[in-house]
Design a protein around this nucleic acid. Sequence first.
DNA 1: TGGGGTGATATTTTT
DNA 2: TATCACCCCA
Length: 671
Amino acid sequence: MKTPLNPPQVQAVRHVDGPLLVLAGAGSGKTRVITHKIAWLVRECGHAPGNIGAVTFTNKAAREMKSRVAALLGPRDGRGLMVSTFHSLGLRILQRDHAHLGYRSGFSIFDAEDARGVMRELLRSAGTDADQDGERLQWRISAWKSDMVSPEQAISKAADDTEHHQALLYAEYQRHLQAYNAFDFDDLIVRPVQLLAEQPDVREYWQNRLRYLLVDEYQDTNTSQYDLLRQLTGVRARFTVVGDDDQSIYAWRGARPENLHRLSEDYPTLRVIKLEQNYRSTARILRSANALIAGNPHLFDKQLWSTLGDGDPLRVIRSRDADTEVTRIAGEIIQHRFHKRTAFSDYAILYRGNHQARPFEKALREHQIPYRINGGNSFFDKAEIKDLMAYLRLLVNPDDNSAFLRIINTPRRQIGASTLEKLGAYAGQRDISLVAACGEMGLGEYLAERNLQRVREFSQWLDDMTRMAAREPVANVARRVLHETDYEAWLLETSRDPVRTEKRMASLAELVEWLGKLAAREEMDGRLDRVLAHLSLMGILDRQADDDGGDQVQLMTLHAAKGLEFDHVFMVGMEEGLLPHQASIDAETIEEERRLCYVGITRARRSLTLSWAAHRRRAGDTVECEPSRFLAELPTADVVWEDPTRPVDPEVRAAKGRAHLATLRDLLAND
DNA sequence: TGGGGTGATATTTTT
DNA sequence: TATCACCCCA
C-alpha cells in the first residue's frame, strides 16, 4: 500500500499526548495505523523504541507487526522495540520480578495439558469421582482468572455448592502451582497485574520502561488484560488501543468488549477516532455487512464505505443436502478459477465449526483441488516434543512435578504406578518435590529395594544432567538427553513403525535446532530457562507460517478467519442452528453470532457466496434446515438468491423472525 | 502396555 | 452418526 494515510488515520497517528481509542472497521488499515504510529513516536516524538510496547493477541500478529515496523523504520531505528503478545509481555515482567511472588528463577510454564493434569489429581484426592469434571474445572478457574477473581474471592462469592467446591479446588490448584514453581497461561497476565498493583517499585520500573503502549484487537481483551494495560500506563495514560466492537467474537472465552466503553469512563480525556474507509472489499459486500450488523445494538455507530465500486452481487446458493453443497462448491471453484484465471489461494471456505471441514476436505481431494486447513495440530502438541520439553523443564526446575510425571517412565524405567504413588505420598508428607523425594534417604523405608534402586538411578542421572546443563550450550543439552535416554530406540520399540519414528526424530531435530537458534538470541543470554519459557508460548512453529505460501484453497472457521482477507469467500452452512449456532440463539448470544457472520462477510475482497443446505445430518439423523436468519438481513439489492421465488422484503422478514423464515423455506423448497 | 471395545457427546481457541 | 477418550484385558 503506497497510498498516503487518510485524514482520520493521520489524526490517530499524531494523537500522542493522551489516551486514544481507534475504532477501526474491518479492512480500514488498523495495522498500518499502529505501525505508522510507532514510527511517528520514534521519529517525531523522540521516543526511544525501547520505551514503546505494542501488544497483540497472537504470535502471528506480533510477527507481522514486527516485520511491518521494521520495513518502515529499518532494522536499526527499531532496535529494542517491544512487540509482543500479552502473554510474553507478562512473561517478561515475571522473569524480572517473580521473586516478589515467592517464585524462583527457572519457573515452568504449564500448558493446558499440564494444568489439566494437576486438576485431575486434585479432583481425585478430593474424592470427586468424575474424571471429566476436570475440563469444567479448568474452564471455571480460567474464567475466574480472566476476571481477576482470586481464590479467596471465588470462595466467598460462590453461588452454590458446586461453585464453592470448585473455588476450594481453585485455591488448592494455585497452591500446587506455587509449589511446582510454575505459572499457567492465565497466570502470565494475572500475576503481573498483581505484582504491579502491590509492588510500587515494580510498577515504577515497568511504567518507566514502557512509556507508550499500543494494543491491537482491543475488543478481545479480558478483564485481566485491561488491568494490565491500566497498571502499565498508570496516570500518564499514554496509550493507543485499536479495536472494533463489531468484530468481538470471543466473549465466550472471557473477552470483555465492554472494555471499549469502560475506557471513556475510566479515562475522561479519551479521544475516539473512527476509521470507516475500507480498502478491502467492494461496496456491495460492505453494504451487506453494514446492513447485517445494524441488527445489533451499538454505542459507537460505524458505516464502512469504499471507493472500489459495487462489484458483483453476493450470491445465496441453496443445496439439497450437505453432499450436494460440498461438490457444488468444489465445482464452482474449479470453474471460476478457470474463467477468471485466479489462483486456488484466492479462495476461502469459511464455516462455523471445525467438524464442517471434513466433507469439504473429501470433496476437494476428489476434485484434486489443493487445500490447506487452518488450525488444528500444533507442533507443540506432539508427544515427542512435549517429552523433550519436559526433560528440559525438569533440568531447569526440579520442582516441576508435571514434567517429572510425564517423563519418569518415558522411555520406560520400570517405575510403576504404585512406586509413584508411594513416592508422591512421601513427597507430599514432607512438602518436597518428587525429584527431591527421589534423592532422600528416608525413602528406603517405603520402597522395595529394586524400586528404590531405579528411582535412585534416575535421580542420580538427573543430577548429572543438571550439572551438565549449567555449562553446556542449550542444543547440546537437548541432544544429550535424547541420546542418553535412548529415545529413538524407545520410539521404534513402541511404534514399530520406522517411518513414523523417523518423522518424530525429525521433529525433535527441528526442536533442537530451534533451541540452538533461540539460545543465540541476545535477550536469551544462552539460558535454557529463558529459551524454554519462550518456546512454551510459541504455539505454532514459524516454519508453518512460511508454509502457507502454496497455492491452496483456504479452509477455516469463521473465528480463525478474523484478521485475514481473500478475494473469493464461500461461507457455508448458512443455516439456523449452525450459524447462528443452536447453542447461541438466546437474546444475548445471538449478537455474537451476528458479529461472527459480519466477520465472515468482511473477509471477502471481491466476491462472496453464502451457501446453505435444505437437509443435513445432525447428531445421527437427517434434519430439515432453514436458511440462516442472517441471510434475510442482507440488503435485497446487493444479493442474488439463486432461487427467484425468494420474497423480497428483508426488513419485514427480519422483524417477523423465525416463523416467517419457515414460510420462506417452504417457498424455496421447490425440488 | 497397547489395542480394542464401550459409552458418552456433539461451538468457537490462544497462549 | 462419528469420534474420542477411557478402561480393561490379554
